[in-house]
Amino acid sequence: MSRGTRSRPNYLAGAGSLVWLFLVGLPLYVMLAATVRTRSDYAEHGPLSFPESFTLDNYTSAFDSGFGRYFVNTLVVTACVIGIVLLLVPPLAYAIVRNRSRVTSHVFRLFLLGLAIPAQAVIVPMFYLISEAGLYDNLLGVILPTAAFCLPMSALILSGAMRDISPELFEAMAMDGATPRRMFFQLVLPLSRGGLSTIVVFSALQAWNGFLFPLVLTQSDSTKVVTLGLYNFQTEHGIDIPGLLGAVVLSMVPVLLVYLFARRALVQGLMGVGGK
């Protein structure tokens, strides 16, 4: 086919991509290099030099300053958010795709509009609501709003996946006298596994990386999540840069693992809206 120009190297774009590689790679190198050197080595030789010392103290000190507990808290939040999303979204998406009533299409519009609500916009009333409900400084108070803000995108992704199921399959099952419930469990769920894994990854990322809700809805060390721990570490020990960066690296390890083992689901989960 188009052998001519297509295979000739594109120098301009290639150069641009190298610049970008440098812009991304350099900070990542500095970060990793800083985390394995001692504080004095970093302070003396600067971030750009090659490490002259090797130590894992920065990682252990991150754990000593409470990150172990923050990880457990974040895991609890993430697991519960995924649980809520998996309980609520599949039936919702099923109704959006298969129920023909006008009410359902209004509901779908409501969720689409919800895509546009930034979390920043509701933190003031959320603080009021959660305080009134007695959930301030409680992980549940973080879990509920975080899960709610995962619903619009998850509904959009999963209903997109369910819409790809062929109508003939539904008709065939209806001929056999299948109830909507049986179709849901035997047809819809098995055939939308791709969409399900995408919404799991999407919700997990939202919960794992969430910052604003924990920031305003929790207070004590026992309810701190990882992102909040990073922020606090920075404000309290801002000078201990190797230690701080060690904590940053630890916070991204789980996401990196997902990236390695479920790259496709992760990319789709990240993309959400932009998947066009």
Binding site: I84, L87, L88, V89, P91, L92, Y94, A95, I96, R98, N99, R100, S101, V103, T104, V107, L110, F111, G114, I117, V122, M126, L129, L144, P145, A147, A148, F149, L151, P152, A155, F170, E171, M173, A174, A178, T179, P180, M183, F184
Partner: peptide
């Protein structure tokens, strides 16, 4: 013909209205 009712969408809608709308 075996179409789900609106009530399938209800739990998610209630949850969303409560914590976002």
């Amino acid at each position: 013909v075996g179409r789900p009712g609106f009530l399938w969408a209800l739990p998610a809608t209630v949850f969303f209205v409560l914590f976002a709308i």
